[in-house]
Structures are given as structure tokens and as C-alpha cells.
């Protein structure tokens, strides 16, 4: 059975095809980053307009580059939440129309479950149970994944998502959008200990996160507020690099610490990472090193499966469908769909 996956929950229009065995035949992503760049964030109406404009082209390209006949597709999986409601509606309605035309089943997929499952798509040795760290522009969660559909959210961010903090800090320093890749690049030449930023909630016994205070600490350092420094910093390249490196290190430190605590608490020694911040080079390095040194397993999907994509949507949809064939004939989008 060939599976078509469709993802339109935020600012990427994506479609992918999986073959009978679940292997990836095509993975098409049309990013809208350029459109949202000048606003420093995702503008919902712009995102929705772009999704509907290109959805048919993106799906057509996925079918074409997979080298299949669309009539051989046996299942459509589509993201129904969480995300921007208008954006979700475009993908979900297109998918339902497509499935109805071919008379094939359709399954609605949780975007977060897609991120949670992305590791398993690439690493066959990754099996439940494991701890999943989902960390992106819209989400930061630690999840105990016991089996397909059996998830316990251990903790989540109480304010900004980690990726959102990257965006906001980049904006503060006039570095542009999206913040993740830019901060990562600037941090390469920076000194990680140049500035002592807080590791929010690192001593808190919960598995929740908070990145808003860290962001404010960067702002105070930059502007010279709060007595930390007497005067605003000069934003020369050296300073910006040091700020970027110190900030990035603080985020990664908190993520690693909480992930390790979650594994210990649950008695699990396997961690899988999903979401756009999982593409961050420093995070990948720190997590891989820690896993190797401390003897636990860390699974990192390749970068293009960390950021939003339709492969993970097709993958989790396929897995769910094979488990229980009569699932979800109806699809209702839900912008706040919980895991």
C-alpha cells in the first residue's frame, strides 16, 4: 500500500509518498520562510494563502518524483492539529477531497505524534518505549512514549517554545528570521561561557520548561538593564557571536538536563528527538556526546525530518492505520489538538 502524507500545519506545505514497506519514495517541502521573513514570524493569513495556492503542485510533485501512479495510492494521512486552523483546513480538506476521489481511506494525524515518530522512520532499532523530546518553534515537550497511541506528556513549556526563544533572541539582535539557523551560525565563533545566562527551571522537580526569562536575560544583557552591566553592549560581531553561543548553550543545557531527568524518572534509557530545534548542530553534538559518555541511546532524525515534513505524517498515519484499520473516517481539524 502506497501512502500519501500531507502537512500544512504552519509555514511549510509538504507532501510525501511511502512505499509498501514504509520506505520514503518522495519528500517534498515548500517552505514559506521567505514570505514571513520580513515580519519576523509566521503571519497566518499569508501562510493560509500560500498553502492553498501551492497544495496541488506540491502533492503533484511528490507523486511525480516518487515515480508512481496516483491511482495506486492506498491511504492518505494528513495533519489535523495542532497548528494554525486555516492552514490545517487547507491540507485536511484537500486530503479528504483527494481520498474521496480515489475512494481510499483517509487518516487524520497529530502533528506532534509525527515528530515523536520521526526517529522511528529512520532508525529501525528505535522501538517503544522511549522518552521523546519534541522541540520546535511552537512546542517544547517531554513525552513518555509507551506504544503507538500511548503517550504521557511529562512536561511542556510554560511560556515560549525553545524555537520561539531562538526567533525572538535573533530578532532582538537584528539577525533576521528564522532565528534557529542564524543563532547557530553566529554561535560557531562565539564563546559559550562569555555570558552567564540562567538555566530556567533546571532545579525545578517538574519536567516543564520556561524560556521567556532566558530571553529577557539576553535582552537585559544587550541593553544594559537591571544592573548586570552599566551600558548597552556594542553589537559588533564578536559580542553577537558570544551572546548567541551563550544563549544557545543555556537552552541546550536545560533541554539535556530535563531529558535526562525524564529518562531516569521513567527508568528508560532511550531518547528520541523531534522538531525543528532538533536540527540545531550544537544540540545534536551535546546530546550525542552525553549519550555516548553516559551509556544511554539518543536517536536524532536527520535534519530534514526534524523540521516540519510530510514523511513523518505519512509514517505515523501508516502505522496507526495498520494497527487499527477502521480508524478515523471523519477528520476534524483542531488547532489545539493535544498529544
Amino acid at each position: 500500500m502506497l501512502v500519501l502524507g500531507i502537512e500544512t500545519s504552519c509555514d511549510e506545505t509538504a507532501a510525501a509518498i511511502l512505499d509498501d514497506t514504509g520506505e520514503v519514495l518522495s519528500n517534498v517541502i515548500l517552505s514559506q520562510i521567505k514570505l514571513h521573513e520580513k515580519y519576523g514570524g509566521v503571519v497566518p493569513e499569508i501562510a493560509c494563502r500560500k498553502h492553498i495556492e501551492v497544495i496541488d503542485l506540491v502533492v503533484e510533485e511528490a507523486v511525480k518524483s516518487a515515480g508512481i501512479d496516483k491511482k495506486d495510492i492506498g491511504l492518505v494521512a494528513v495533519t489535523v492539529g495542532p497548528g494554525l486552523v486555516g492552514a490545517l483546513l487547507v491540507g485536511a480538506t484537500f486530503a479528504r477531497g483527494f481520498a474521496m476521489g480515489l475512494g481510499i481511506p483517509l487518516i487524520g494525524v497529530n502533528h506532534l505524534e509525527g515528530h515523536l515518530f520521526a526517529g522511528q522512520m529512520e532508525h529501525k532499532e528505535l522501538r517503544f518505549p522511549y522518552i521523546s523530546l519534541i522541540v520546535s518553534g511552537g512546542h517544547t515537550s517531554l513525552v513518555k512514549a509507551l506504544g503507538l497511541g500511548h503517550y504521557e506528556v511529562l512536561g511542556r513549556t510554560l511560556d515560549d517554545a525553545a524555537g520561539e526563544a531562538f526567533d525572538k533572541v535573533a530578532k532582538m539582535m537584528d539577525l533576521g528570521y528564522p532565528g534557529g539557523p542564524i543563532i547557530e551560525k553566529m554561535a560557531l565563533n562565539g564563546i559559550k561561557k562569555a555570558y552567564k545566562f540562567p538555566r530556567p527551571m533546571i532545579n525545578d522537580s517538574s519536567f516543564d520548561f520556561s524560556f521567556s526569562g532566558l530571553k529577557t536575560a539576553v535582552l537585559y544583557q544587550l541593553k544594559g538593564y537591571g544592573g548586570a552591566v552599566a551600558a548597552p553592549l556594542k553589537t559588533d560581531e564578536k559580542t553577537v557571536s558570544d551572546l548567541a553561543a551563550s544563549f544557545q548553550e543555556a537552552v541546550v543545557d536545560v533541554l539535556l538536563d530535563k531529558a535526562k531527568k525524564a529518562m531516569k524518572y521513567c527508568g528508560l534509557e532511550t531518547l528520541s528527538i523531534g522538531g525543528g530545534v532538533g536540527a540545531n548542530g550544537r544540540l545534536r553534538e551535546v546530546f550525542s556526546d552525553a549519550a555516548e559518555k553516559e551509556g544511554w541511546k539518543c536517536f536524532l532524525p536527520s535534519r530534514n525530518l526534524c523540521t516540519d515534513n510530510a514523511v513523518m505524517i505519512a509514517g505515523i498515519g501508516r502505522a496507526r492505520f495498520m494497527e487499527k484499520k477502521d480508524m478515523l473516517k471523519k477528520i476534524d481539524v483542531n488547532p489545539r489538538l493535544p498529544l
Binding site: 493569513e45 493560509c48 498553502h51 492553498i52 497544495i55 496541488d56 502533492v59 503533484e60 496516483k70 486555516g86 483546513l89 487547507v90 491540507g91 480538506t93 484537500f94 486530503a95 479528504r96 477531497g97 483527494f98 481520498a99 474521496m100 476521489g101 480515489l102
Partner: peptide
């Protein structure tokens, strides 16, 4: 706007598969 896109998404999806 939402109504327009729902109708258009249905039309595009169904027309493409048929």
C-alpha cells in the same frame, strides 16, 4: 477567506485525484 479556501481545497484535491 476560510470559506473560499475550504471550497478551493476540496475542488483541487478531488479534481487532482479524479
Amino acid at each position: 477567506y476560510t470559506g473560499i479556501r475550504v471550497g478551493m481545497a476540496l475542488a483541487k484535491g478531488m479534481a487532482f485525484s479524479l
